[in-house]
């Protein structure tokens, strides 16, 4: 069985700071695997292991993503090979544009795939649309919010968890499936996995041609913080504090 997992590499938002002019300062932020993609990688790795299959990772990210630590991190999580296209125009690329690039990687390196897994949404844009766009581009079925998967011949039976109900759906392969974080807990790669990752194949290419964007980004700024009263009391003034709180609750 041949599984592909789409992975986005982003800046670690814990270390993104807001500058005085409300623009974002990424200078101290390292590149990491987008949070919910680690769950998708784990689901893909487990599925491959359980079904005697192979699993490769594909990624459309910025040139900063061509970073040894991040690539090793991906490969230390049960992934056999990594195919990456790196270009800075991909930083805020919309889902249509991103899907075209991912389709290109799949066509060139894994055209005989059975299943493509995606995460819930990326840490930066959280659009949750690349799965649909990629499925449309590849002309295959797609389903999202998947919290469990089981291979049954040329189909995958998924547990699909919505707010008030859980569906059991049979998906014909090949297909694109996007998984919720609950689908699998990402492993903590062991030393041997990390060492082995350094020896696994990975390729990074540039974009062949211009990006086909369908959305233009005009501005990115931190929101204006609502001005607050900033009335701060010391521990001894609990009575005054309680009175202020009671007043606010009215």
């Amino acid at each position: 069985m041949k599984i592909v997992v789409a992975v986005k590499v982003v800046a670690d938002d814990q270390d993104i700071f807001v500058s005085g002019d409300r623009s974002l300062d990424y200078s101290k932020a390292r590149q990491i695997i987008s949070t919910y993609d680690t769950n998708a990688i784990e689901a893909a790795a487990q599925l491959a292991a359980d079904n005697d299959g192979t699993v490769v990772a594909i990624s459309a990210s910025t040139t900063k993503a061509d970073d040894t630590k991040v690539k090793k991190d991906i490969l230390s999580r049960g992934i056999d090979e990594l195919f990456m296209v790196a270009d800075d125009s991909l930083e805020t690329a919309d889902s249509y544009a991103t899907a075209q690039v991912l389709k290109g990687i799949v066509d060139a390196n894994a055209s005989d795939y059975d299943l493509i897994l995606c995460g819930d949404g990326s840490a930066d844009l959280y659009a949750g649309q690349v799965d649909v766009q990629l499925a449309a581009a590849l002309d295959v079925p797609v389903i999202n919010e998947v919290t469990g998967l089981k291979v049954e011949g040329d189909k995958v039976v998924v547990e699909r968890t919505l707010e008030d109900e859980v569906e059991e759906i049979e998906v014909p392969l090949p297909a694109v499936i996007s998984v919720s974080p609950n689908v699998a807990t990402p492993r903590i790669p062991g030393m041997r996995e990390i060492l082995a990752a350094g020896k696994k194949p990975s390729s990074v290419e540039g974009l062949a041609g211009a990006l086909e964007t369908k959305v233009e980004v005009e501005d990115i700024k931190a929101p204006e913080m609502t001005p607050r009263k900033n009335e701060i009391f010391a521990e001894g003034d609990i009575d005054a504090f309680a009175a202020a709180v009671a007043e606010a609750l009215k």
Binding site: I16, D124, L125, Y126, V217, I220, K221, P223
Partner: peptide
């Protein structure tokens, strides 16, 4: 953007 850290105009 980034879950609310910033706002994006598109």
């Amino acid at each position: 953007y980034f879950g609310g850290l910033a706002e994006m105009k598109q």
